[in-house]
Amino acid sequence: MNKILEKEHFSENVVKLVVEAPAIARSRKPGHFVIVRACENGERIPLTIADADTVKGTITLVVQNVGVSSGKICSLEPGESLTDVVGPLGQATHIEKVGTVVCCGGGVGVAPLLPIIKAMKEAGNKVITVLAARTKELIILEEQVRPYSDEVIIMTDDGSYGTKGLVTNGVESVINREKVDLVVTIGPAIMMKFVSLLTKKYDIPTMCSLNTIMVDGTGMCGACRVTVGGKTKFVCIDGPEFDAHQVDFDEMLMRLRSFN
């Protein structure tokens, strides 16, 4: 049982939870995730560790309500508990000083991006963050990414905030303007697919973080498998981050619809 200490609504469907998990707080690194069960009889779902406080022994999760299990987690209040939280899982992000890094996140993908933005900045990179959403209300974590970003570009589909356009338009404007050494993209699979196609055109190394369907998160079931560079990989143990140019996004998009 892991107690929820704080809760904040980032938007109607996105909440931030600060959860008691001292051992995980201590051992986690940027890029890691946890598997959570909201209740007995609940499903095991993966959520990125957006932040951690080793002193308080807490981790921060940012959860978007997209269905049954994420909905149950979003409905929990401070004082209530998650039945299970296990982690940290996956490979930590490879952080290195490469020069200029464009970090682009869509929707709730900004949550897993935040620790990477921080770490990239702390490693001495110039960090340009591109946040994208359908509309103004869905832009999250803008205040949290600002201190670690040399520049923040906001893109909305409807132009209600920042620049009107897709995440790819924002990234391309940077590429056209200056030398970009690395692109990190996290968001819906379809968004990562198009960012990847764009950066492939410009031959810029690109890292993505995949959100496949999972069960155990420890390599036991194979539900999370994707094809990367023609080989089957398990996202939970080999990932979640991969070279985006090698990922078969169409297969991943198909597999995400397994239960729809």
């Binding site: 095991r44 069960v215 155990d216 194979g222 089957t232 297969e251 198909m254 597999r255 619809r257 397994s258």
Partner: peptide, 19 residues
């Protein structure tokens, strides 16, 4: 082998027995 509906016995049995 990665089509929807092809899975490991671990996934199938875990979903049913454990979950």
């Amino acid at each position: 082998e990665n089509y929807i509906g092809v899975m490991s016995s671990n996934e199938y049995l875990t979903r049913i027995n454990l979950m």
